[in-house]
């Protein structure tokens, strides 16, 4: 494959990973506007451990994911006491604090940025991304996915059925943070350089937006959203700002006419059913 094609696929893979990170809390009705912060934690942790302590890249990434997930768990408990607008605001504030914190940590270069040693090539990025995708797909076939939807649709009734809604929310949020950490680590090791400015609020916003554009009812939603966002400029071959304009217009239109996103549960079922029929005939 050409270098250009590989570069696009790597970008797509990383975007899908972080889309899944945004998807899990959204599936439980939580808008996380601080995903870039968790990416930064995963990326910097892995970069630091592999560069300063010469740990293997796999260990670094695992540690990065764990650090992001653990931070997610720690903040989930107080932050998830709020909901709706307050939760979106709290995650926004958290993302800002994390970004500002890395701007001050001299050990990882602070504002000057931090070069990352071990390089994650095409195969590594794609395999890890594929692993994350499979894990989320498997998760979506368990009872947990059902509980996420129930928590989103009617937390009160779900609670009445004896489900610990709060635990479900904390789990979705922390798992999302963990996956964001993996995405951040992939980013760090592939692009070999980290700057706090990369992990700004707009990155979090774009991730949340393309997940919502794809839809949060099925795992296919965030994948379609990420693919759309990554491939749009390549398809258009237009100036890079136009892709954001078109993306923004699409977001506004989709939210207006089809607020559940492009891929809904019903659509996904119909497509699957169609395939089965084809296979049968």
């Amino acid at each position: 494959m050409s270098g250009y094609g590989e570069a696009i696929l790597v970008m797509l893979a990383i975007n899908i990973v972080v889309a899944l990170a945004g998807y899990l809390p959204l599936a439980a009705g939580q808008l996380n506007l601080g995903i870039a912060g968790f990416m930064a934690v995963g990326g910097y942790t892995s970069a630091y451990l592999t560069s300063a302590y010469h740990l293997p890249m796999g260990v670094g990434m695992a540690a990065g994911a764990a650090a992001a997930g653990l931070l997610g768990l720690l903040v989930a408990v107080p932050v998830l006491r709020t909901s709706g607008i307050y939760l979106a605001l709290a995650t926004f504030a958290l993302g800002q604090v994390i970004q500002a914190a890395f701007l001050n940590i001299e050990a990882v270069g602070a504002a000057a940025g931090y070069p990352v040693k071990p390089y994650a090539g095409f195969t590594v990025v794609l395999s890890v991304a594929f692993g994350v995708l499979v894990a989320v797909l498997l998760l979506s076939r368990t009872r947990f996915a059902l509980l996420l939807t129930a928590t989103k649709n009617d937390p009160l009734v779900t609670e009445l059925f004896g489900v610990d809604v709060r635990a479900i929310r904390v789990a979705a949020f922390s798992l999302g943070a963990l996956i964001a950490g993996i995405g951040g680590a992939l980013y760090a090791h592939h692009y070999s350089y980290l700057e706090p400015q990369n992990f700004n609020i707009m990155l979090s916003v774009y991730i949340a937006l393309y997940v919502l554009l794809g839809g949060t009812q099925t795992v296919a939603g965030p994948i379609v959203g990420a693919a759309f966002f990554t491939l749009l400029p390549e398809l258009l071959r237009a100036g890079s700002h136009w892709r954001f304009v078109i993306f923004a217009v699409l977001i506004i239109l989709v939210m207006a006419v089809r607020p559940e996103g492009l891929i809904t549960g019903a659509l996904a079922r119909r497509l699957r059913f169609g395939k089965r029929r084809e296979a049968a005939s």
């Binding site: 808008l31 709706g84 607008i85 979106a88 916003v205 949340a208 937006l209 919502l212 700002h241 136009w242 954001f244 304009v245 993306f247 923004a248 217009v249 977001i251 506004i252 939210m255 207006a256 607020p259």
Partner: peptide, 16 residues
């Protein structure tokens, strides 16, 4: 959350 999301769309639109 839907108007919130659309308003982010407008922010991106105006800026770009």
């Amino acid at each position: 959350e839907i108007p919130l999301v659309s308003s982010l769309g407008f922010l991106i639109l105006f800026e770009n």
